[in-house]
Structures are given as C-alpha cells and as structure tokens.
Design a protein around this nucleic acid. Sequence first.
RNA 1: UGGCCCGUGGUGCAAUUGGCAGCACGUCUGACUCUGGAUCAGAAGGUUCCAGGUUCGAUUCCUGGCGGGCCAGCCA
Length: 637
Amino acid sequence: MAAEETGRTPTNFIEDIIEEELRTGQRGGTVITRFPPEPNGYLHIGHCKSICLNFGLGLKYGGRTHLRFDDTNPSKEEQEYVNSIMEDVRWLGFDWGQHLYYASDYFDQLYEWAILLIKAGKAYVCDLTPEQVREYRGTLTRPGKESPFRNRSVEENLDLFERMKKGEFPDGSRTLRAKIDMASPNLNLRDPVLYRILRATHHRTGDKWCIYPMYDWAHGQSDWIEGITHSICTLEFENHRPLYDWFIDTIRELGGAPKGVNYRPRQIEFARLELTYTVMSKRKLLYLVKEGHVRGWDDPRMPTISGLRRRGYTPEALREFARRIGVAKFNSTVDVAVLENAIRDDLNKRAPRVMGVLRPLKLVIDNYPEGQVEELDAINNPEDPAAGTRKVPFSKVLYIEQDDFREVPPPKYFRLFPGQEVRLRYAYFVKCTGVVKDPVTGAVTEVHCTYDPATRGGDAPDGRKVKGTIHWVSAAHAVDCEVRLYDHLFTKPDPDEIDVPDNSAGQGDDKGTRKQGDKGRGAQAAGQSATDDAPDEYEMLAGSGSLDADPAHETAGGGPADASARPAWLNNLNPKSLEILAGAKLEPSVKGAAPGTRYQFERHGYFCVDPDSTAERLVFNRTVTLKDTWAKIEKKK
RNA sequence: UGGCCCGUGGUGCAAUUGGCAGCACGUCUGACUCUGGAUCAGAAGGUUCCAGGUUCGAUUCCUGGCGGGCCAGCCA
C-alpha cells in the first residue's frame, strides 16, 4: 500500500503479487514468509539469495519471517548442520525472533492428518516395492496404473498404518500413499507417497518414529500450520504446488484445518542463482569436500556462506549482491564479477589501507643514513577521512614488489627501472641507480637507488612529477606472513561445459563444446533422471549422488553410472585457484590483527586475517583483487 | 508423441499495468589522481524469440509457432 503512493522503486514480480494481495486484503493483510532449509549441509550463496528474499519481504511489509528446518529425512540430517545454518543466517544479519520451527514439531499433527485422509478413503497403505511403484507410475506420456492395494478397506488401512508406526514391518516394505489420480498429467498427483518406513535416529525426535513423512506431505502443511502467507520457493517446485493445494484443501474439507488459520499459503516460485566459474549444487560441493579438492565446506574458494565469510566477504556485500541480481522466473547465470564488485564497493568504503609486499624485492637507498628510522604519516582510508592516519616506519633498506621493478621496462611502464624516478608512497622520490644480480642465475636480487630528501612525504618542492607511485615496507620492521591468493575454482564460466574433440580435427583448431548433463531424449526413454541436481527450496541431499544407495539413478557428475568415475566437471577445476605466498612482508601496523580483520593492501586488493593465524604468524586470505587496468592491458598482449 | 513454467543489449534485471525500451555489471574511450586499482564523464551495444491478430498505439493483451527449463526418489 505504501508502495502505491510512494514510489517507483522497482519491485520484483513477487512483490507485485504481494502488494496486489495486500491491496485487496487477502491472507489477513499480513506477510509471513519463511526460510525452510533441510539441515543436511552448509548454506551457499544461492541460499543467501533465498534468505535475503524471504527475510527482505518480511521486513519490507512489516510482517515476519520464520526459520524452519525441513527435517523429514533423518538419514541425512545432523545437528551440526542445524547449527551452521543458524549461524549463517544470523551472520547475514537476519533475525527470526521467536519463530524457530522444525517440520519434526509437526510429526504428530501430520500423523493425525494422515489418519483423517485414510478415514475419508483418500489414503491407503501400499505394499508395492519401490520398483513396482515406479512401473505403476507410468511415464511422462502414459498414464499410470492403479496399485492393487488401492482399494483396501478403511479398517485395514487404519490397522496397517498403525502397525507401520509401531514398527511391525521392515524398512521400505510398505508406504502410505494418497489416493488421487494415477492418470494425472502431473506425476506428483499419481498417488504420491506420504510415509515411508525408515529406522533412523532423528536429530530431534530420536527413535520415537520409524515412519517419516515425505517432504511433499510435510512441507505445505508446515507452512499452513505456521500461517505462512507466501511460500517462496524455487522453480522446480512449481509442479508440486497442485499437490500441496490438494493436501490442504482436502484436509480443510475434512474439517482438519489448524485453528486460527483461514487462508492457504500462496506459493510463488523464483529462479535459483547460478554463478559463473562456480558450481552451486550441494552434491558437487560435497564431492569437492569429500575428495579433498578443497579444505572443507568453509574453504575460501567455496561459494558457501561460511567459505565466503572466511574469505572476507561481509554480510552487507552479500545482501547488496542479492539486491543487485534481482528476482525473476527464468533460469539465468549471474556473472561472478557482480559478486566481486559488491564486495569491492563495500570494502572500499570501510577497509583500512595498509602497505604489503607480496613478492618482496630488496630496495636499498644508497644515500639514506645507515640506521636512521623515520615515522611517516599514512592515510588510513582516503574514502573515509574519519579513519585518520597512522605512522609507518621508513629506513634505508626496504622491500618493494618484484613486479614494480623491471630491468628492461615494457612500453608505458610507470614503475621502477634503471634511471627512472618513482614515488615511494607517503615517503620519498627515489631514482633507480642499478641492480645487484645473482652471479649464477642472473636474477636481480637487490635494487639500488638514491632518494631526494626534499621530497619527504611524497611531494617535490620543485613541482616535478613522477608517473609511478609504489608501495613498500621497511625491511627491519616488516611483519612476515603467509598470504593465500584465490582465483575462480573453475577455469570455465560454466564448469559443466566439457571439451569435445572435433572429428574433423586436423583442419582448424576449433574445439566443440557441449554441456555436460545435456539430456538426449534417450536418457528419458531409459527411464533415468538426467537431473543434475536435486534441490529443495535451495536444498538438496548432501549424501546423494555417488554416495547414494541408488547409483544407477544419479551419479556424482551426471556422467557414467560408475560411481567411482571421475566426474567430467572436475576436469574444469582451476589448478591455480589457490596460490600460497609464504614470504609476504607487511607494514608493522597489522601486527596482532585478529582473525576476520579486513584490510586493503594498497594496489593489491582486499585481504582478511584467516583463523589459521597464530600469534607468531599471520595468515591472510585475499578476498578480492582491486580492479586492475594495467593487468588487463598486459593480459591482452 | 503428457503437463506446468519461462523468452527484453554480452550478462543480470526494469519499464508507473497499453504511450517513442531504461538501470547495473561487463566492454571501449576520455578526464583526474600520492593506490595504473579510487572517482568522474562519455560511447558502443536491442527487429523486446518469430508470425499473425486486437488497438490510434503492443515489451505489455489474444492466437499459433519456435526455443529453453522442470517433472517419472520410499530425496528435498
């Protein structure tokens, strides 16, 4: 309503729907959303989009947002994941207040509703094996067949279901199914399974149950129970909406509606986030973790919230990123540069600047007094005058960046080379007079120069200019540390793209490419899902894929059904995604910085103290480089 | 030869609900600068998937094509 008069601030299609409903007074005139993860893994940047969307809606319309764990599959879920998810959501800056829920809170209610359905003749216990169920389900183009157990009496169903609950039958031997329509063009309506028998200890209900509700049976009603007005989820649940509606409408007609809830949640689907040079499937992320291609879920190269946090991303940048990418209804891939730009924008305003030499080269000022140390003033953040200044020690022997010196400069090189004068930032003009080389290798080991004492602070009284300004660290005062440089985890914008050798090779170097996981029509005929991922509202089974009990169904890479085969997308892993610099030299002001502290290393980028740091040795992660036009020019050559 | 959903510059999204298609990122150019990286300015880039229809007027509404996505787990 407010948006009606005020403004033209662009809204997304979900907000349009909500505002229309608010205008017409539907669903109690409020907005209650929820973020419903399954606690089977760590959250990633795609979840971040969903979190910002859901909590953003609650905030924008003066409603609220629940955090609910959809914990209906105890064999995959763990308390550790619950904890990490809560930590990540909080860290992102969102608050669910008192509204922390679990689908497992509703197991009793769900069970009662199942009884209600059975009594109304709308659910039955089915003895078909999983294979038979699949056969009976039919195909996309052919209707299914009704189960021979479909018309059991209410009494028998009640008895059997009760005994399922009591644990009289082995795992997987029977299911409770809804009786809907085996001929429905929507496969979800072909008598979906409501309960399966599964003896697994649940992280919250322990061994109380040996039957567990399917996600489809639990999810929509959970939203309903909580009075969720708008169930925001991803596109692949579009086909499930009619089923959720059927469940709720049927229960309501049977008089089972929860007290005080007089509307049905409206489900609205949006497209998941895909990022270039990144994989966003939890199965693939898990694979990377398990196979040791990264150091864990929080490896700074991972697109997980915890990885990004460790890398040095801020919640503000992540929220801004979510705002910039928007929300729409068709699948798209966001350029990872948008993410990088968001963190640059944020850190540019806030990160204190510091001088750090990543690859040191000794610079000796021949005419500078031996043993003299000067404390020079340096600006902490040119974008923020309030950040003040600091003192940086200067002396005769310094370190400069290897890359800031060339014995033979390329054209338009602004930095140091024999005969060239540059400014040492905040210090003096120096002119290169010569080099010392390793007699064996011929490598430059030391650069010599003279300084102009009149240029103290960095300005020449005679008004002469220098083209280059380079950073430096006093050798005697330098803090040694380890710096970890990160690059994209994959070498291709689309990690699923694999090279296909050209048949007419010999002519031309054209290499064809194709999408891994492309579904030929044949794959479907084989009755095999070619789906590469299996998400919930952004979740998927952490343990599926190669670790799944049914390897024929889905493999780790969407590749051959041999679970031991190396997924093709792994070939696109970037071998240079991590570079460790052991001998970096930083100015002394960084001494004692706590893990998580962020700096801009001038002319390099933004860095963050890693938890691996010890009292003796700091470890820094490079969050993101600065934009580098020179590097871009170099690259083009 | 099923059903549902979606097609707007390279990419991601807008377009006040039918009024000459804008923004961001990326790209290119220039300015400025004690971070070559901050910042600022400018430019290029679109037959709004195609074809009909309604209308004075269609990105928007209708019809038909074409293209893409999702669905046949006792996963979520």
